[in-house]
Amino acid sequence: MEALLQQVVAGLATGGIYASIALALVMIYQSTHQINFAQGEMGMFATYIAWALIHWGMPYWPAFFLTVVIAFLGGAFLQRTVLRPLENASHLANIVVFVGLMITFNSLAGLLFTYTIKTFPSPFPNRLIFDGLLSFHQLGAIVVTGTVLLLLFAFFKYTPVGLAIRAGAQNPLSARLVGIRVSHMLALGWGLAAAIGAIAGMMVAPIVFLEPNMMSGILLYGFAGALIGGIDNPWGAVAGGFIIGVLENLLGAYVIGTELKLTATLMIIIAVLLFKPAGLFGQRIVKRV
């Protein structure tokens, strides 16, 4: 029983990371209706920036926030330069660019920071809590993810700019006709997603160690979380991320062993999408004519 609880809690902790990646994916989706495959690598690259800042002597939290700002600006800059010319291009063209970005960031990180594994500090005390069930860092990561989620939710739901981003993604023409500068909103969406990805990267790095491929598996699980929860629903994506984290851990520990974890996760995604195509919590957009 104790062991089971431990697996669940550990699952929740990794689930928190998947949840933040899922959230970043949803964010891009809400502002562009696209899924950014480079999301994980962008977060990884930002984590290297944080690592460099800390390495040069900056205290953790200033480095954390500076990295978030840099990631935001970098994301917005990418949209303005690389993606903007493709705003009217097909989805396929965009996907090619996403994959290209993914490879670019991966190689760039390897080139600049080498492929040797680095340790990345946690801002939280290094000890276990709740009778050893959870590390302080895992709890901290969950709290950070939760805070980001709440802030984002409030931003999208209650601010005019949040509304403008959603409107621009849903119907760009109508949005322009009410005066929304849709192109700027896309840049803002990219900036936000990059910032969230950076936070996720900095939260995951103390657990998995920092190296250029640290996000590849995580992106897949995050993607699974987003799909299961509903790609248009931030809450659903977060819930989906936690569900995947727990399932992954339980299946790995009790049912199929670690080798088949990924396969099992993919099967769950397929099953969910077969029976609930909009995801467990996704909004079916009803359209009457």
């Binding site: 005019p160 509304l163 403008a164 959603r166 409107a167 849903q170 119907n171 023409l173 109508s174 949005a175 006709l177 009410v178 005066g179 929304i180 248009d232 909004q283 957009i285 009803v286 359209k287």
Partner: peptide, 25 residues
């Protein structure tokens, strides 16, 4: 103000959010 053919509704937004979007300026 231009209301395009086919109405241009923001389908997934609520009625009030549609109006808030309209009042964006």
């Amino acid at each position: 103000a231009h209301v395009p053919v086919g109405r241009g509704t923001f389908l997934a937004l609520t009625v009030e959010e549609n109006l808030r979007a309209g009042a964006y300026l």
